[in-house]
Each structure stands twice: as structure tokens, then as C-alpha cells.
Design a protein around this nucleic acid. Structure first.
Length: 783
DNA sequence: GGACTCCGTATACC
DNA sequence: ACGGGTATACGGAGTCC
């Protein structure tokens, strides 16, 4: 097991670490199902750039001069956590004696490199990590769902007397379930039993949805109101909260459950959707649909109170169903974090909330600390080059192939190689090599696996490796990365561009026809004589052979039809007739649902060459709009608000912000909102050209008996969507298809879908030879 | 006052 | 607490004639 990747200590079965006092951490292990613990000494530390800032500090500390020439060249180690804080504050004061502007907190002291997380510090210095020798199923995970009685399900109601928790549902990963019923128990008794149940089950992990933003704050505020200690931690330790202020202004509450980990599935889902983009919403009702989890009913938030009044059994059932959804969502999304926790020196719950750069950096820092080497400071600047994107043809094309440079950026970093200039100990590239080879192994184990359980085990493992592998390039250009290096990031991207251009040239040489390229891959039509699975594979392989060592081109997809619209905007019809639509101008979530559906139908017609149906689609959508044959959900827009109501109103009054429709609609409806909430609104009025911020209402206010949406405006929106298809037809044909003038009946006769070559006025000729030269030099290096 | 450009924000691709 | 650059869409403000 690689110490670089997994830490230099081989201790197994650690399920949690927590700070017991100023000098001890308690380590919990779960061996053969039983939880045990031991207490060990740990030594708080931080890095310092300027040793004079600690001169004169009265308490005991060690100072170690680190090897190398990087900025953070002193390691300060303390015996006690409180003395470390005194050290930090001493440094802050010394700093403020001479530096301007004054540093408000340690975070502003650039001479200080410090992470005030005792678990992280202990794992860093010991080389231990969580979960070694365990599998995800060895953990005991409990899920919690609460339902609260209040007028509008707001967190701010948690302190009101007339509000209360009416249901607490719990489940675990071994199908245990338990429910506390607000009809039988008062709230205090419910909370006491809840705490007792957690202590009895003794889970390693507690999971919930909107856990940090709603469930835990609500529970802890009710406990405070009722005078209860919320002792959810191991060893009867209470749940701890503290306020964290980041570089931005807003504060938020961090929860720490001693000896356990807290997982918010809404965060898992957001991270998941960040790359998949397949979710319409993040609440549990959406999740049960998306992850195909059985859920008997779906109760919207604003209905909870009335459901409890009318039929409490239904709410009880719903809440238990929620706990089950949380369990299954976590089972799907958590395992990759589990395997990351075997590598990265963070508590599992902390890790789940971190970005990929912090994860990668923790591995590097652990090794620099182990070798007692100085640490560089982030470089200021920005990247100059990105990926190469281009489009060569628009229209509907047949027999399209997609070929990608396999893990292009990581492959470039390995084979060139590319590493931060500050990586004196040469950690990055070996780490990347190791991860790549382990990922290959995990993938081949996955293919050979006999059971579904074993397959998903290896799948989660390879995806943990993939997460780290894919963060190497982004890290180079990350402004806060200690080892960032913008020049090297540019080397990766410009090399990627060169490779992509060379792929383009090669396939053209073979008489293939390129459609579009983007960053690491290409859509193209194979030459006439290359048809069928075998031949196309061989063709891609032949092109791949022309690329530098370590760079592979692989066939990613084979499609019956492709609609090429604009760069990064296209649709594909695969061999099983699945339709895939990509690009913000074709499927954006900011489009109204009817526009999205209209565009989708039109694309279907275009890909199946069904012009009569295309015309019919336009006509029938026109009828829907004209006759109000729809629901608010079909034509409203949903936006995420960035500020709460007060902040918005203040900024607008001071002219620091423009008015915006979503805010105005909510304000007029008397609806309070917080930053980050999503608001759905629609456009009112009678003219197409209305100022939207003055003519909008909240979607919930729409009444099908008195429809007041702006028909002219929405008809205009339909026509705007139709405009996207103008370039696929001759002007007169477009006019016939997208109109209602059917006096003589609609006839598709003579109408043809146009395919156009995209012409650009770029003058690229001069650059070409230069790039080839660079390419040649690199080839030379590899031989 | 209408047509135009510019710019910030939102969303998406890789 | 936070990988990145490239691309399209859109509303609002400012600018020009």
C-alpha cells in the first residue's frame, strides 16, 4: 500500500477521531462490529513564513527549520491545543505591529499556514487515515427525517412556541427503523427518546437531508428551548456547533458530533449533479424519482402542516419513506467518499464537504510534512490558455462517431511530464501515476467481479481514484492552491490543443469529415469505406497510433444521427434511438418547461426527418399557449436568488443592484426568502414587450380559472425557440413550417434540411507551423 | 425613441 | 469553502443617431 497515497501508518479499522482535550485525541475503531477506543497524545502545529513573528512567545513550543527554499519554512509544534491558539494569536498581534492593513483574524495573516481542525492535524502528523481494511458496508449509518408543524416550514419558526417537531423517523443501513409520533409523545419526550436511540444504536454516521441547513439547526434550537442537552456524540458528548466565517462575509454554522460523522445528502446530491446535471430539483421528492426509490407519497413542504392536521398517518408514512430515500441516496453517493477517506487525512464528514483541490493538496502536504520540507505560497496570476473548441459543420448528419483523448489532461501531465515548479520533492507526478495505475486495476477488477456487491465496491474505488486524478489539472490553475502554477496549467491546455489539432489533421488526411471538437474529443463522420463496429474501431486506433506515447484516442460513441447547432450545442440519436441533447441553448434549465419540450420535439422531428410532424408540433404548441392549456409549472421560470430579501431591497435602494424579476415577484407576493432559495415566477401583462420585473408573479399565485399569464409574451417565447431552427432550412421553407397559415394544407414537398459548412474568418495559417514544431520537440523528448 | 452595443449573470460543455 | 477555460442566452443600461 503506497504511503504517499494512504499515509505512512497502517493502522486499520479507524472509524472516527475526535479531540478529547487540549492534548489528547480519542480514536474509535470498529473491529468485528464492536466499537472500541483509545486515547493518544497529539501535537498541534502550524507553519510560519517569518520566524520573527513568534519570537518572545512565552509558552512552550518547538520550532523546526524546514528543508528547501519555500516561503513557509518553519514548523511550529505545541504540546497543547490552547497553547497553539495562543501562539496563533501571538503571531497575529506581532503581525499587526508592523503590517498594514491590519489582519482581523489569523486567516488574513499570509505568513501563517494553519488549519484549525484537530482531526486533520492528528491524521496529518500520524499518517493514519480512516477505514483502512474496511468496506463501506462495515459502517453503521443511521438516517434521520423530521417533520415540523408550523405555518410555512421555516427555520426561523424553530424558536416559536406554537411550532414543534411532530415526527422523527429513523432508519439504518440494516433495515432497522423507528418512529417517534407527536400524537403520542410531547416534543421533549420525543427528543429524549431520539437521543437515547442514537446512543443505543451507536452509529458511526448520522445522515439527513438538508441536515446542516434545516434538520440539525431545528433540532438543536428546539432542544435549547426545552432545556435539553443534545448528546448525540460518542461517550455522551454533546453535539457541538460553532460559527465559521470564510473569506466571504456570510457566516454559517458547523456541526461536530464527537466520535461520529454527519452527512448531509443534499450536499452529496449537489456535488453529484454538478457533473451529471440530470436533476430537476434537490428535494427528497425529486430524489426518490431520480434514484427510483419507492416512496408512497410526495408532500410538498407547504402542505406538511395541513397533512398533519388532516391525516397524520400519511405524514408518518411519508417521513419514514424519506429516511429510506436518504439511506439509498447515501448508499449510491457515499462510497467514493469512503474510499477517499482511506487516503486523505480528513475526518469522513469533513472530507464529504471539501472540494477536490483540498483533497489532493492534503496528500501532498502530508508528504511534505513527513519529509520536513518547506511549503510554497500560492502564486498570483491567471491562466492564459484553455481548451480548443471549434465547429466545422451545422445541420443533421448521419453515421457520426465520437472519439476522445483518453483522460487527456492527466495523460499529458504524466507523459510530458507536467508538475508545479514548486514541487521540489517530486510528489505530484508519482502520485498521479500511482492513482492511474490503481484506477486501471480497480476497473479491471470491476469487470471481473461476479456479484453486484463486488462490482459496486470496485466501481466506488475507481471513482475515488478518478476524482483525485481529475483534480490535478484544475489544481494547477487554482488561485488558492499552495502549489498552483499557471504556466504549467497553460502547458497542459496548449499541449491538449496541439494534440486535438493533430487528431483533426489526421482524420482529415484519412478523408473523414469533422463536425465539432471540444477540449479532448471530436465528433466526425468516418470515410465512406469505413463502416461497421470493427472498421471504425480500427480507424480510431490507426489515428491513435499517430499520437505521442502515452496519449490514446478511443472511440467513445457511435450515433445514427447528429444535429449540430453551435459550439457545445448538439443532439445525438444513438443506435438504440435514445435522444441526447447537449448545450445551454437547447436544454437550459433557465428555459421554461414548454420551450424545452418544444425544442426537444423539434429535434426529434429533425433527427427522424419528419417535416410534417415538425410543422404539427409548432401548430399544437401554438394552440396550447393561446388557449392556456397548461399549468404554471409549464411556463414559469425558476431562478436561484443570491441574496435574501432584506439585502436585495437595500442594494436596490442604494442603486448597487438592478431589480430582478424573481425577487420582485416574491416581494410583491409578500414571500420572504433566503439566499440560495429557488423562486418560480411567470410573466403577466398583455404586450409581448413588457418590462418583466414590473410584470411578474409567483408561480403558485397562478389560477387556472383566471389565467393571467402574458399570452403574447409566451407566444413570442415559442417563436424565439423556433428561431433556433431557422438555419436548418431555406428561408421560405422555414416560413412555411413555423407558421399557422395552412389555408391550402401543409405539404413537406421540396423541403430539405440544410447542412452547412461553418466558415470563419480566423487566420490560422501562420500559427500552424510553430505548433507542429513544439509537437516535434516533445516527440523527441519521449523517444 | 428605436436600434445598437456592452456588460453582468446564468447555464452548460468538457 | 471554493479545480479550470470556453461558449451561448438574455435582460438591462447606456449610447448613438
Amino acid at each position: 500500500m503506497s504511503p504517499l497515497l494512504y499515509g505512512h501508518h497502517t493502522d486499520e479499522c479507524i472509524v472516527a477521531v475526535h479531540q478529547l482535550n487540549d492534548s489528547l485525541v480519542r480514536i474509535y475503531k470498529r473491529i468485528e462490529g464492536k466499537a472500541t477506543h483509545e486515547d493518544v497524545e497529539f501535537f498541534p502545529f502550524f507553519f510560519l513564513a517569518d520566524a520573527s513573528l513568534i519570537t518572545g512567545f512565552p509558552a512552550f513550543y518547538w520550532i523546526k527549520e524546514l528543508a528547501g527554499q519555500h516561503d513557509y519554512k518553519h514548523l511550529l509544534v505545541f504540546k497543547r491545543w490552547n497553547e497553539m491558539w495562543e501562539g496563533v494569536n501571538f503571531v497575529l498581534n506581532q503581525y499587526n505591529k508592523t503590517r498594514r492593513p491590519r489582519a482581523e483574524s489569523y486567516q488574513d495573516v499570509d505568513s501563517l499556514l494553519f488549519r484549525p481542525d484537530p482531526v486533520y492535524q492528528y491524521l496529518m502528523q500520524s499518517g493514519k487515515t480512516s477505514f483502512k481494511g474496511m468496506s463501506f458496508r462495515d459502517l453503521n449509518r443511521v438516517q434521520i427525517d423530521i417533520q415540523v408543524y408550523s405555518a410555512n416550514q421555516r427555520l426561523t419558526d424553530a424558536l416559536k412556541q406554537q411550532c414543534r417537531i411532530v415526527v422523527i423517523s429513523m432508519s439504518d443501513n440494516l433495515r432497522w427503523k423507528q418512529q417517534l409520533d407527536g400524537r403520542k409523545l410531547d416534543e421533549k419526550e420525543m427528543l429524549l427518546q431520539f437521543i437515547a436511540l442514537i446512543q443505543a444504536k451507536d452509529p458511526d454516521i448520522i445522515e439527513g437531508h438538508e441536515f446542516f441547513s434545516f434538520v440539525l439547526p431545528y433540532i438543536s434550537q428546539r432542544c435549547e428551548l426545552l432545556g435539553l442537552d443534545l448528546t448525540l456524540g460518542r461517550g455522551q458528548h454533546a453535539l457541538k456547533t460553532y460559527q465559521k466565517r470564510f473569506y466571504s462575509e456570510d457566516e454559517f454554522t458547523v456541526y461536530d458530533c464527537p466520535g461520529r460523522h454527519l452527512i448531509d445528502t443534499s450536499h452529496l446530491v449537489r456535488t453529484y449533479d454538478y457533473s451529471k446535471r440530470s436533476l430537476e430539483g434537490y428535494d427528497l421528492n425529486h430524489l426518490s424519482a431520480h434514484f427510483q426509490v419507492q416512496q408512497s407519497v410526495a408532500i410538498p413542504k407547504h402542505r406538511v402542516t395541513s397533512v398533519w392536521d388532516e391525516s397524520p398517518e400519511i405524514l408518518l408514512q411519508y417521513s419514514l419513506g424519506n429516511a429510506r430515500v436518504i439511506e439509498l441516496v447515501s448508499e449510491r453517493l457515499s462510497p467514493s467518499n469512503f474510499y477517499l477517506a482511506q487516503m486523505c487525512p480528513f475526518g469522513y464528514g469533513t472530507l464529504a464537504q471539501l472540494g477536490s483541490s483540498a483533497r489532493l493538496e492534503s496528500l501532498v502536504l502530508r508528504e511534505y510534512l513527513r519529509q520536513k520540507h518547506s511549503i510554497p505560497r500560492p502564486q498570483r496570476g491567471s491562466q492564459a490558455v484553455g481548451g480548443y473548441t471549434d465547429i466545422f459543420s451545422t445541420g443533421v448528419l448521419e453515421n457520426v462517431l465520437q472519439a476522445d483523448g483518453e483522460s487527456l489532461y492527466p495523460s499529458i501531465m504524466i507523459s510530458k511530464p507536467v508538475k508545479p515548479r514548486t514541487d521540489t520533492l517530486d510528489v505530484f507526478v508519482p502520485l498521479l501515476r500511482e492513482l492511474t495505475s490503481l484506477r486501471l486495476k480497480a476497473k479491471s477488477n470491476m469487470k471481473r467481479a461476479k456479484s453486484a456487491r463486488s462490482r459496486s465496491h470496485f466501481d466506488a474505488m475507481q471513482s475515488a481514484f478518478k476524482i483525485l486524478i481529475n483534480s490535478f489539472y484544475g489544481y494547477l490553475g487554482y488561485s488558492r492552491g499552495l502549489f498552483n502554477d499557471y504556466q504549467q496549467a497553460d502547458v497542459v491546455t496548449s499541449t491538449g490543443q496541439t494534440i486535438l489539432r493533430s487528431i483533426l489533421k489526421e482524420i482529415e488526411l484519412f478523408n473523414a469529415f469533422p463536425i465539432e471538437v471540444d477540449t479532448d474529443g471530436i465528433f466526425f463522420i468516418a470515410p465512406d469505406n469505413i463502416r461497421g463496429e470493427k472498421n471504425t474501431e480500427a480507424f480510431v486506433e490507426r489515428v491513435s497510433k499517430t499520437l505521442p506515447a502515452g496519449i490514446n484516442l478511443v472511440l467513445e460513441g457511435r450515433y445514427k444521427k447528429m444535429l449540430s447547432y453551435k459550439m457545445k450545442n448538439y443532439a445525438l440519436l444513438d443506435e438504440s434511438d435514445n435522444l441526447i441533447i447537449r448545450g445551454s441553448s437547447l436544454i437550459s434549465r433557465s428555459m421554461e418547461r414548454f420551450s424545452r419540450l418544444f425544442v426537444q420535439r423539434c429535434i426529434e422531428c429533425l433527427l427522424t426527418d419528419d417535416i410534417p410532424r415538425l410543422h404539427h408540433t409548432y401548430a399544437s404548441f401554438t394552440t396550447l399557449v393561446r388557449n392556456h392549456q397548461w399549468e404554471a409549472a409549464d411556463f414559469c421560470r425558476t431562478e436561484t436568488v443570491r441574496e435574501d430579501l432584506e439585502t436585495y431591497t437595500r442594494l436596490v435602494e442604494h442603486g448597487q443592484r438592478n431589480v430582478s424579476a424573481a425577487y420582485e415577484a416574491a416581494r410583491k407576493a409578500g414571500l420572504y426568502f433566503k439566499a440560495g432559495e429557488r423562486i418560480s415566477y411567470y410573466v403577466t401583462g398583455t404586450h409581448q414587450e413588457v418590462k418583466i420585473a414590473d410584470n411578474c408573479r409567483i408561480a403558485d399565485e397562478w389560477d387556472s380559472n383566471l389565467p393571467d399569464e402574458n399570452t403574447a409574451y409566451y407566444f413570442g417565447r415559442l417563436n424565439e425557440s423556433a428561431e433556433k431552427f431557422r438555419e436548418f432550412f431555406e428561408p421560405e421553407d422555414f416560413k412555411i413550417i413555423f407558421s399557422l397559415d395552412d389555408l391550402f394544407g401543409f405539404s413537406p414537398k421540396g423541403i430539405r434540411i440544410l447542412t452547412k459548412k461553418v466558415t470563419r474568418e480566423k487566420a490560422e495559417g501562420a500559427k500552424e507551423s510553430e505548433e507542429n514544431e513544439e509537437f516535434g520537440i516533445w516527440l523527441g523528448e519521449n523517444e
